[in-house]
Nucleic acid binder design. Structure first.
Length: 630
DNA sequence: CCGGCGGTTGACATT
DNA sequence: GAATGTCAACCGCCG
C-alpha cells in the first residue's frame, strides 16, 4: 500500500460539494490524490442527463473533475482499485434496499483488495438505522414516532465546503469493461434508440464524460426544471430570504393548482440528487424560526421542518423493511387489498417483477387513460400531463391522482401508480414514493379511506377559474369556468364555441374542433364502490406478509361480485353480519389484529437482487443551463 | 376492556 | 369569504 492515501470518492446521492460529510472524510485523509468517481449503474432509471463534467470541481481545482465510469460499481470499482492503486474508498451511506446489497458487495471487494472503506451518513437528517433503533427496531409509521425517536438526537450541522481539492492521479485504464446485461433494461420505457453509453468505459473521447442523451437513446428533456448545486443553493436562498414564507409554510394550505411559480419549494429534486443538503436546509430554516414570532409560526407536521421529517420517516421505514417496503407482498406493514392489475411476483424471492396481471380489461383501460392524462376528468388529466412533461407535480396533486387510481376511483394497485411516478418524477425516492402510495391507498400510514379527493371539488378550492387545467389541458382552454372541471356537462353550443367537443375516449380533432374525452366513469358511483370495497378489505384484515397473501388463498376470504372478484359491490352483508364469508372475515380480522398488536416478526425475506424496483438514484445533475429529464 | 383523542392536507353545509 | 360543524366511523395510542 502506498504511504500516502490514494482515494476514490464515490458519488451516489450526494452530488454536491457543500455539507458532504463523506467528502470531508475523504479530504481529512490528506490524500496524495483524489478521484471523484461516478459509476454508471444499469440498475437505475436514467431520465436526467448528466451534465458536462466541468462542475464545481473546476472552480476549486482545474485538474480535477467528475470521472464518470460507464460500468456498474460492483464490477468496475475492484478493477479501479488495482489500476489506480487505491488505498481508500469513501462514500455516503445509503439505506435503500438495492443500495445496501450493492454496498455490501463493494465492501467485500474492497476488503479483498486491501482497500479501506469509509462510509458517512449524509442523505437524511438522521441516520435511518439510528431512528429505527430508537423506535425499538420497528419501522417508523408516524411523525410522532419519528419525533420521539429523534428526541435525543441532533441534526448534524453542515460541514464546510472544501476550498481545495487534491489532484487526481493517473487515469489509465488497462482493463476490459464488463458490459451490463441488456435484460432487464430499466430504461427500456424511456428509450427510443439503442443504448450506446456502455461501449467505452471512459466515454467515446476517453475523457470520462457523462453519456449524452443521444448516447443513452433517450429523447431530449421537456422539463424546465434544472439540476445542479448552484441552482439548488440559489433556490434555497430565495426561500430563506422570504422569512414569512419559510416560517408560516403550511403544506395543506399550499395550492396544488399553482404553477409558474408553484406554491411549494420545489427543492425535492435537489434533495434526491443530493445537490442540496437536507441538513443545510434544516438549519437555515431553524435560523429563520429563531427570529420569527413563535405564535405566528406554523408547526410540525405541516411546516417545512415537518416535510423533512416525513422524508426521514419514509427512509427509516424502508431501512427496516428493505425490499418489501416497495410492494404489498411480504410487507408486514402494508394492508392487503385485492386491487385490480396486481403485480406478478417472482416465486424465487417473492419480489414484484416489472409486469402485472390484467385481471380486468376495463381496469387496464382506466390505468392507461390515467397514465396518459385522458381520463376525461380535467384535473386528473392536467396533473398527469404536467407530471409527464415536467417531471414534478405538487404534493397534493400527487395525492389527488393517487387516490383516484387506487381507493377513490379505479381500484387499481398502488404499485402500478408508483411505477409511473418512478418513471416520470425527477424527485423520485423509492422510500418516499412507496410510502406515499401506501399512504394514499390507505394500505399503510393512513386509514381514513372514506376521505376521497374529488376530481371536481378539490381543485375548485384553489383554482375556481381552472387556469391550471387550461394550461396543461389546452383543448379545454376556452371552456367557461362553470364547466372547466366537468366539461361533459357543457352544452354542445358552449363546446363548439370553445372549439372543443367532449366525446369518445380519446383526445383528438374533428372538423376543426379539438376533442376531449368523456369521463371514463361516474366518479361518485366509483367512489361508493371503492369505499365499500375498502371497508371489506379492512374487515378481512390481511397484511402483505400473511401466508394467505403469498399462497393465493386470500381469495377465499373475499366475496365475489359482478363488478370484479373482490370489490364487494354486490351484497350488503360484506361486513360480516350474514354470510359465511363474513364469518371467515371476522375470524381473519381477529387473528390478524392480534398479530399486529403483538411483536411484529420482521420480514424474513432475504435481500436478493431484484428486477422490478429500479430507483432513480442514478441521475446526475445537468450542468448549468443543460437540459435534464426526459 | 373501554372510551377518547389525534392523525400533515375531504366534502359539503352552515354560520 | 373564512371558520366551524357534520358526515360516518378508519387505525393506533393513551389513560
Amino acid at each position: 500500500m502506498p504511504s500516502k492515501p490514494r482515494v476514490i470518492y464515490w458519488f451516489r446521492t450526494d452530488l454536491r460539494l457543500h455539507d458532504s460529510p463523506a467528502l470531508k472524510a475523504a479530504l481529512d485523509l490528506k490524500p496524495e490524490c483524489l478521484y471523484p468517481v461516478w459509476c454508471w449503474d444499469p440498475h437505475y432509471v436514467y431520465r436526467a442527463r448528466v451534465g458536462p463534467n466541468r462542475w464545481q470541481f473546476l472552480k476549486i481545482n482545474k485538474k480535477s473533475k467528475l470521472f464518470v465510469v460507464r460500468e456498474a460499481p460492483q464490477t468496475v470499482l475492484p478493477k479501479l482499485f488495482k489500476a489506480w492503486k487505491i488505498s481508500h474508498l469513501v462514500f455516503e451511506k445509503d439505506t435503500d434496499a438495492y443500495a445496501r446489497d450493492r454496498d455490501e458487495s463493494i465492501n467485500k471487494e474492497a476488503k479483498a483488495a486491501g482497500v479501506e472503506v469509509i462510509m458517512k451518513m449524509g442523505r437524511t437528517l438522521y441516520d435511518p438505522d439510528e431512528l429505527v433503533k430508537r423506535n425499538h427496531g420497528k419501522p417508523t409509521m408516524s411523525i410522532s414516532q419519528v419525533e420521539k425517536a429523534a428526541e435525543k438526537l441532533e441534526v448534524a450541522k453542515p460541514v464546510p465546503t472544501p476550498e481545495s481539492l487534491p489532484d487526481p492521479g493517473d487515469t489509465n485504464i488497462d482493463f476490459e469493461p464488463t458490459q451490463p446485461s441488456p435484460d432487464p433494461d430499466f430504461n427500456d420505457i424511456q428509450r427510443h434508440a439503442p443504448d450506446k453509453s456502455y461501449h467505452k468505459l471512459s466515454g467515446p473521447n476517453g475523457d470520462f464524460a457523462p453519456p449524452t442523451m443521444s448516447e443513452l437513446g433517450l429523447k431530449e428533456a421537456t422539463s424546465q426544471h434544472r439540476g445542479g448545486e448552484s441552482v439548488a443553493l440559489k433556490n434555497l436562498e430565495k426561500i430563506i430570504f422570504d422569512a414569512d414564507y419559510t416560517a408560516t409554510f403550511s403544506k395543506p394550505q399550499t395550492a396544488p393548482t399553482a404553477f409558474n411559480p408553484q406554491s411549494t419549494t420545489l427543492l425535492s429534486p435537489h434533495h434526491h440528487f443530493g445537490s442540496l443538503s437536507v441538513r443545510l436546509f434544516y438549519w437555515r430554516i431553524m435560523e429563520v424560526l429563531e427570529k420569527y414570532p413563535k405564535n405566528k409560526q406554523s408547526t410540525i407536521p405541516t411546516n417545512l421542518i415537518g416535510q423533512l421529517l416525513f422524508r426521514d420517516m419514509y427512509f427509516a421505514a424502508q431501512a427496516t423493511l428493505g425490499y418489501s417496503f416497495a410492494q404489498t407482498v411480504g410487507n408486514s406493514h402494508c394492508r392487503f387489498v385485492p386491487w385490480h392489475l396486481p403485480s406478478k411476483i417472482d416465486p424465487a424471492n417473492n419480489l414484484i417483477t416489472a409486469s402485472y396481471h390484467i385481471d380486468s380489461e376495463e381496469a387496464e383501460i382506466w390505468f392507461q387513460r390515467w397514465k396518459w392524462g385522458k381520463t376525461g376528468f380535467p384535473w386528473i388529466d392536467a396533473v398527469m400531463r404536467q407530471l409527464r412533461t415536467e417531471g414534478w407535480i405538487h404534493h397534493l396533486a400527487r395525492h389527488a391522482v393517487a387516490c383516484f387510481l387506487t381507493r377513490g376511483g379505479c381500484y387499481i394497485s398502488w404499485e402500478r401508480g408508483a411505477e409511473v411516478f418512478e418513471e416520470w418524477l425527477v424527485d423520485h425516492e423509492v422510500s418516499c414514493n412507496s410510502g406515499n402510495w401506501q399512504w394514499l391507498s390507505c394500505t399503510a400510514f393512513y386509514a381514513q379511506y372514506y376521505r376521497c379527493y374529488s376530481p371536481i371539488a378539490f381543485p375548485k378550492k384553489t383554482d375556481p377559474n381552472g387556469d391550471y387545467v387550461r394550461h396543461y389541458v389546452p383543448e379545454l382552454q376556452k371552456l367557461p369556468a362553470k364547466y372547466i372541471y366537468e366539461p361533459w356537462k357543457a352544452p354542445i353550443q358552449d363546446q363548439k364555441k370553445a372549439g372543443c367537443l367532449v366525446k369518445g375516449e380519446d383526445v383528438g380533432e374533428e372538423g376543426g374542433s379539438r376533442v376531449y374525452p368523456k369521463p371514463m366513469f361516474d366518479f361518485n358511483e366509483r367512489r361508493e364502490i371503492c369505499i365499500e370495497a375498502m371497508k371489506n378489505a379492512y374487515h378481512v384484515g390481511l397484511y402483505g406478509d400473511n401466508k394467505k397473501v403469498l399462497d393465493g388463498t386470500w381469495k377465499e376470504l373475499f366475496s365475489d361480485s359482478a363488478e370484479g372478484p373482490t370489490e364487494g359491490k354486490k351484497e350488503e352483508g360484506m361486513n360480516g353480519a350474514d354470510s359465511d364469508i363474513g364469518e371467515h372475515a371476522d375470524d381473519g380480522e381477529g387473528e390478524e389484529k392480534k398479530k399486529k398488536g403483538g411483536q411484529q416478526s420482521p420480514s424474513k425475506q432475504t435481500a436478493q437482487k431484484r428486477k422490478g424496483q429500479g430507483t432513480l438514484d442514478g441521475h446526475v445533475n445537468g450542468g448549468k443551463g443543460k437540459k435534464r429529464k426526459t
